[in-house]
């Protein structure tokens, strides 16, 4: 049993850290890709804003998606709720309000992470060291994950941590596949086109997936890239992997043996997982990758809402029902 507010703070703390890491990864790859910026890559920056889902807010305040603007918007813009700065600040705020639950080394690391980002935001020539900054952000996020794994009891708070991490990651991986796939291959059913290997590699890199992809599939082929990022059973950033492990954590939270879930969030995650379970990628491509991912996105949002309703936002009447259920089981 965990206070709803505490569970919510832990869940969001982890979502925000994962989000910051993903934004850093997208940025890093794009910077790398556009360093030898020719004419053809000028439009490469707009998709980044789509990937985080903030195009409306960006257009209103910045207009054209140029490198400089997009970089600032995604790294330090305090008004962009999904900038690295905003995410890390919110993660820290969430941790601060549940300090009795967060192990001290984890808190210290998060605090350092915040100071790092705040320092960089005020640094004069940060534009020259974007890659280095992004590297530090990724490393900080990985350190936090390691500390979560190794300093926190793997009980309910830990499972809420994992749930937050994995749902956020599934969301971001699916988004990047959606956006980039469309740009690289407007008509996936077309065959025989010459592939832009550099940009396909960069798609894999932005999910830190290039090396693992090579070991699994070897040469780069569009449908195998999609297969790897959406359906792979072992790659820890694939949508399927995230859903399988998020489901495990959700089960641990409600404490029921596998297959006995009846709660709305349990139902939703079961459907989501089945969507990516042993489905041949060809079927997905046949139906349309964009349509498929769109459905995943909608369901992920619904799952998030269901988790909120079930665990965080107890209204008096639903609360009593759950409570009496619980009491009748335990007594």
């Amino acid at each position: 049993m965990l206070l709803s507010r505490v569970a919510e703070s832990i869940y969001w703390m982890n979502r925000y850290i994962e989000r910051a890491e993903n934004v850093a990864r997208f940025l890093d790859v794009n910077h790398n890709l556009t360093l030898g910026d020719g004419e053809g890559l000028g439009r490469q920056w707009a998709p980044l804003v789509y990937t985080t889902g903030d195009e409306k807010s960006f257009q209103e305040r910045y207009g054209d998606a140029e490198k400089k603007q997009v970089t600032h918007f995604l790294m330090f813009d305090k008004e962009n709720p999904n900038s690295i700065f905003s995410c890390v600040a919110k993660a820290r705020e969430n941790a601060r309000s549940v300090r009795e639950i967060v192990p001290m080394p984890l808190w210290e690391q998060l605090n350092r992470f915040y100071l790092l980002v705040r320092g960089a935001a005020n640094a004069a020539n940060i534009a020259d060291s974007v890659a280095e900054f992004c590297e530090q952000v990724k490393l900080a996020s990985h350190t936090l994950l390691g500390l979560t794994y190794s300093t926190m009891s793997h009980g309910e708070p830990w499972h809420f941590s994992m749930l937050g991490r994995l749902i956020e990651r599934a969301d971001k991986t699916s988004r990047i596949v959606d956006v980039q796939y469309y740009l690289l291959l407007p008509n996936p059913r077309e065959v025989g086109l010459t592939l832009d290997i550099v940009r396909w590699s960069s798609l894999l890199k932005s999910a830190s997936a290039l090396e693992m992809y090579r070991r699994t599939h070897g040469r780069i082929e569009p449908h195998k890239v999609a297969d790897f990022l959406i359906l792979d059973r072992f790659f820890p950033r694939s949508v399927h992997f995230c859903l399988v492990h998020a489901q495990e954590s959700l089960r641990a939270i409600v404490d029921g043996p596998p297959g006995t879930q009846i709660s709305p969030s349990g139902e939703l995650i079961e459907q989501l997982r089945l969507n990516t379970d042993r489905v041949p990628i060809e079927n997905i491509i046949q139906r349309g990758i964009h349509e498929f991912i769109d459905e995943i996105q909608v369901r992920l949002n619904r799952l998030g809402d269901a988790i909120t309703a079930e665990f965080f936002a107890l209204t008096p009447s639903t609360g009593t029902d759950l409570s009496s259920q619980q009491q009748s089981i335990t007594t």
Binding site: S4, R5, L314, P316, T320, Q326
Partner: peptide, 30 residues
């Protein structure tokens, strides 16, 4: 709270219903 092993709550974690005081938890009201 930590030393005593009791929950550290804020006002928003608590509510009054049916004449008793409850806290909102992931397992319902306590």
């Amino acid at each position: 709270a930590h030393q005593m092993g009791i929950e550290l709550v804020q006002g928003s974690d608590l509510l009054v219903q049916d004449g008793y005081l409850w806290m909102r938890t992931t397992r319902g009201l306590r």
